[in-house]
């Protein structure tokens, strides 16, 4: 029995850590899925907006003395507003065109945002500590010591994911949104301001990315490339879950985080590629993704 426990221990450890990474994948792919599902825009700037969330948190702390909790609220608000400006001035002009134009525009925006931050702050990163409330010895789970802050990440991520899913699938506002995607003219004819809803949706998606950025700031190095590291994996997560499916992206976000974790025990060299292998298999078997509607 003890031997079995010994074998099981790394499995449990990596599963738990994978859950934390999965929390970030889920939050980021959620924002992407919302934006793609509602606006049909492939938001390549999502990683840069995630990074911006973390950098704004650092700026709030450094220049205004506003700590983690304030940043958790303010940073998504600020970056979300920036998203609103981007949507109004640029993206809204592309809705009628092919997806590719939106992809190219947001990819360009991502390069510009990353370049600006790099010129201003360099690449090594900005120090951002774990908030005081979580400065306690790691919690002993029996099979590993888990820092309290990482629990918080998982709890917040699950809450936000479920909340967003509920808002879109179960509320009246959500039903308007979904209707506006299917039949924009008809919904507008009923007196609903569709362009405003589009803008608000993009702003919300961007705010979700920034929110994930603030969550990530205490555990990952805050630097201009931090989003680029995530975004390719997150795109794979969205494709696996099914483009535009909220639940699909959340579930596959967590699942892939854990699979990646297990890979780190048995074949660490492949941990960066395992997600793409799964993506290839899923695309072969179910081209619309696990939860997608073909």
């Amino acid at each position: 029995m003890t031997e079995l426990w010994y074998d099981l221990e790394p499995f449990l450890q990596q599963g738990t850590l994978g859950l934390v990474n999965g929390a970030f994948y889920a939050l980021l792919s959620l924002g992407l899925a919302v934006i793609f599902g509602m606006l049909n825009v492939i938001n390549f700037a999502h990683g840069a907006q995630f990074m911006l969330g973390a950098v704004v948190a650092w700026m709030l702390l450094t220049y205004a003395g506003i700590g983690y909790w304030g940043a958790l609220l303010l940073s998504p608000l600020i970056v979300g507003l920036l998203g609103v400006v981007i949507e109004r001035t640029m993206i809204s002009r592309l809705y009628k065109l092919d997806h590719l134009y939106g992809l190219l525009l947001t990819f360009g925006l991502a390069l510009i945002i990353e370049g600006l931050v790099r010129n201003q702050y360099g690449v090594s990163g900005l120090p951002y500590g774990v908030p005081d409330a979580f400065r306690m010895p790691p919690v002993d789970l029996g099979y590993m010591l888990m820092p309290a802050y990482r629990f918080w990440i998982v709890v917040v991520s699950i809450t936000v994911c479920l909340g967003t899913w509920y808002a879109i699938e179960k509320t009246k506002l959500g039903s308007y949104l979904r209707a506006a995607v299917e039949r924009p003219q008809l919904v507008q004819a009923f007196g609903v301001n569709v362009p405003l809803m589009m803008t608000a949706t993009y702003g919300t998606g961007v705010a979700l990315a920034a929110f994930a950025g603030v969550l990530a700031a205490p555990v990952y190095s805050v630097h201009p490339g931090m989003g680029a590291n995530f975004i390719i994996i997150v795109f794979a997560v969205v494709v696996i879950g099914g483009m535009g499916s909220i639940m699909g992206s959340v579930v596959s976000g967590y699942a892939l985080g854990m699979i990646e974790g297990f890979t780190r025990v048995y074949y660490p060299e492949a941990s960066a590629t395992v997600v793409f292998v799964i993506m290839a298999i899923v695309l072969l078997v179910r081209p619309a993704g696990l939860f997608g509607r073909a």
């Binding site: 790394p10 850590l17 990474n21 590291n229 025990v265 941990s271 590629t273």
Partner: peptide
């Protein structure tokens, strides 16, 4: 343990190993 380069952000699994 060999970590993929570049592109590894989370080192906690490797640290635990």
């Amino acid at each position: 343990v060999r970590t993929p380069f570049p592109g590894t952000t989370d080192f906690s699994s490797f640290l635990l190993q």
